[in-house]
Amino acid sequence: MSCWQTVQDYGLRSLGYGERLLPREDITLCEQFVLIGSGMIWNVYFGVLALAAGFVLANAVALAKASARRRLRKPAEAFILLFRGSPLFIQFFLAYFIFLRLKDGVPGTDFLTSAAAGALVVLFLNTAAYSAEIFHGALKSIPKGEVEAADAYGLAGWARFRRILWPTQMRLAWPAYTNEAIFLFHATTLVFFTGFPAQRQSADALYYANYFADRTFNPFVPYPILAGYFILLTLVILGVFGLVNRRLNRHLPQEARLKMRAPRVMLR
Rank of each mutant, 00 (worst) to 15 (best):
I182F: 05
F196N: 06
Y153E: 13
A205H: 02
Y153K: 07
P197T: 04
R200P: 01
T178I: 09
R162F: 10
A173Q: 02
L155Q: 10
F161Q: 03
M170T: 11
L206A: 12
R162L: 13
T188C: 14
T188W: 01
A205E: 01
N179E: 12
F192W: 05
D204V: 04
S202I: 04
L190M: 11
A176H: 00
V147E: 15
A159G: 09
L155P: 04
P175C: 14
A176L: 07
G195N: 04
M170K: 13
T189H: 05
F196I: 06
G157E: 05
D151P: 06
A205V: 01
T178E: 03
F161M: 05
L172A: 14
N210W: 02
P175H: 12
L172E: 09
I182E: 03
L172I: 14
R162S: 14
F196H: 01
A173V: 02
L165H: 07
I182R: 03
E180Y: 00
D151E: 15
F183M: 14
A209W: 02
Y177Q: 11
F183S: 15
T189V: 06
F185S: 05
L206K: 02
F183W: 12
A209H: 04
P175N: 15
V147C: 15
E180C: 11
M170H: 11
I164N: 07
F193L: 15
A181M: 15
T194Y: 04
R160I: 07
A205G: 04
P197V: 08
T178N: 08
Q201K: 10
A176V: 00
A181E: 08
R160Q: 13
A181S: 15
L172C: 14
F193Y: 08
R160S: 15
N210V: 07
R171W: 09
T188H: 04
W174I: 05
